[in-house]
Design a protein around this nucleic acid. Structure first.
Lengths: 347, 347
DNA sequence: ATTAGCACTCGCTTTAATTGAGTGCTAACA
DNA sequence: TGTTAGCACTCAATTAAAGCGAGTGCTAAT
């Protein structure tokens, strides 16, 4: 079926209304919305089509429609207009440029915090990183009969940790052996010198512990991957609780817990590939915890320091056009503020 | 009325039971609790006495009792026994000492994160600070007809901001004038050279804006106060949502929002006065947002760098004895790890 | 192709009834 | 005099039923 002009208008209207209200939107609501002067019955027919096409869904019979991930995707890719900042908004955001911050990382973090405050969005990001990080050392702390905490310390003294569950009982000789092995083979080796082969080598060497080694190496690999974007941060996490979709504490807790974990932020930040704005909608997210979230990500680059990432996170019902525009302004500001500055030495 | 031996036992039993279950505890529950072999009726009488003394309260008639702030206070000061770590607990925590972290601030933050992970408590803290901070510059960004965002940048490039509401309409000349004045008089002046007199002077000078100046100066004063403890952090904030007292999103949001604001954390950290453990229970807190929270705070000191603060935060129904013991272990560990290290230069 | 009309669906809200944990009080007992 | 068994009473929380109303799909007329 084809997406005719009128269907586009209706889809757009449904999505924009839903973004504002968080309530399923019915045919009458749309029909009263001037624009296209047709009756609710006509809208109903069109909406039934849109549902068949997978762009809208009904939470239950006899409820209005809400957009599906595909619906949002269509909207974002083909329908969405540029958000126009009001004069006062633009003034407010522009004024922030006056800030005379010299330390780049701190500047970005704080700029982010102020944006979060002014826009009421939650912002996640990573600071610009270089490419020669290494892991300083590994530690393993036994927790239960069959689990241990693996702690990884990077060159920047960033500590990452993860609880590893084994499928058999372990004792301190096991944890010691594993951590020794990791320290001997991987500690101090810069990222660029580590590849999968090296890791396979280790696995072969540790034949006996093969079965228990897999989760360990997975985590180690993750840590190595995230070495260059060394610091991640989040601003205004509690703003998520303003959204009715998180009026259920269980939901809120799952998301906040997910965001509390720096590893997850790292993975998110790493997923942005090029310099443009990337939008990840609902079920398009890899992490199951984010299946009801959308993320609008963009990268910025700082001369001599590499690239970092900044993005908004919120419910799928996010004001995409505003988020994109704001994000562009924000990254543009960062580029502006740093482009005429010499990169400072590592702190 | 006197707090007899039996009343003490009952009070302790009620509090400890409530700490575990978060449910009002009734007389029968206590009577079944061996210890003192009396019937529920007797317990009822005693509990009525304890209520009269202000140590217990009833959420409603026909419900069990819950401790009041005063009840917790009595418990903490006079009844509480030392928490005994189990062997596995102590092993687990001790192992963390092996971490070879060199940068003190980072170490403390990360140690804190791991403790939060292992104990399932939320931890707040501040890093050790020096005493010659200054404010680098001030900015004011108009937001509405009658409010503006005051932004303060410190020597460490920490940015603090607060929305200031005026009781009259303002325009950009006002905000400019105020920020100019602040920059001229206070920017670059180290903390020790600023006193209240100086601030009064400024107020006199700015006669015309007297009325609008008060909130501005209050905030500036706050910033100056917090200059030495320059960095605050929070670990495991989402763990608060595990507690049934925050199953109400509104409540949770209020608290998390409060903790999102670094100013508030600063104020909390600043409130610990001496080197020992300080416990602030429920309504003893200054901030209304914390009236249902308790905080167990302690300071640590690092040679040559001054003192910092670390503490647990949770609902009043907190396991005080465990929190105190854990905190002592944690600060002890910090002291241990840093005492034989030369302080490093400012980063 | 559009629309008015209508029967039908189903989540949400309101109200009423029921349950049960816990209390205070009284009277009996050691 | 302190303790205890017993009982009527209270009140939040749970459950069930009833009613509401927004919204749909379908049909027949325009």
């Amino acid at each position: 079926m084809d997406l005719g002009e009128r269907k586009k208008k209706i889809l757009g209207a449904v999505i924009e209304h839903y973004i504002r209200t968080a309530e399923p939107v019915g045919s009458r609501t749309i029909s009263k919305l001037d624009e296209l002067g047709v009756s609710s019955a006509t809208i109903r027919n069109e909406m039934a089509d849109l549902e068949e096409m997978g762009l809208l869904t009904q939470p239950h019979t006899s409820a209005g429609r809400i957009p599906s991930t595909m619906g949002y995707r269509t909207y974002v890719d083909r329908l969405m207009k540029n958000y126009e900042f009001s004069v006062s908004e633009i003034n407010r955001l522009r004024s922030l440029m006056e800030l005379q911050l010299t330390e780049v990382d701190s500047m970005i973090k704080e700029l982010t915090g102020i944006y979060s405050y002014l826009t009421n969005y939650t912002i996640v990001g990573s600071s610009a990183g270089n490419n020669n990080g290494y892991i300083k050392n590994f530690h393993m702390v036994q927790i239960d009969r069959n689990s241990a905490l693996l702690i990884v310390v990077t060159d920047k003294n960033i500590v990452k940790n993860k609880q590893i569950y084994f499928d058999c009982d372990i004792d301190s000789t096991v944890t010691e052996k594993i951590s020794n092995m990791l320290n001997e083979n991987l500690a101090g080796v810069v990222k660029s010198k580590i590849n999968l082969e090296k890791i396979y080598e280790i696995q072969a060497e540790m034949d006996i512990y093969k079965s228990v080694l897999l989760p360990v190496l997975n985590f180690v690999n993750e840590c190595i991957e995230s070495l260059d974007n060394s610091e991640v941060f989040i601003s205004g996490a509690s703003k998520l609780l303003d959204f009715p979709e998180y009026s259920n504490v269980q939901k809120a807790k799952e998301l906040l817990e997910f965001l509390d974990n720096k590893e997850n932020l790292h993975r998110m930040a790493a997923s942005v590939d090029n310099a443009d704005v990337k939008i990840i909608i609902g079920s398009e997210n890899d992490a199951i915890e984010l299946k009801d979230c959308s993320i609008v990500l963009s990268s910025y680059s700082i001369k001599g320091k590499g690239t970092g990432t900044i993005g908004f996170i919120g419910p799928t019902r996010m004001n995409y056009s505003k988020a994109v525009s704001t994000l562009k302004l924000l990254t543009g500001q960062i580029d502006n503020l740093t482009s005429n500055k010499e990169p400072e030495g590592e702190k």
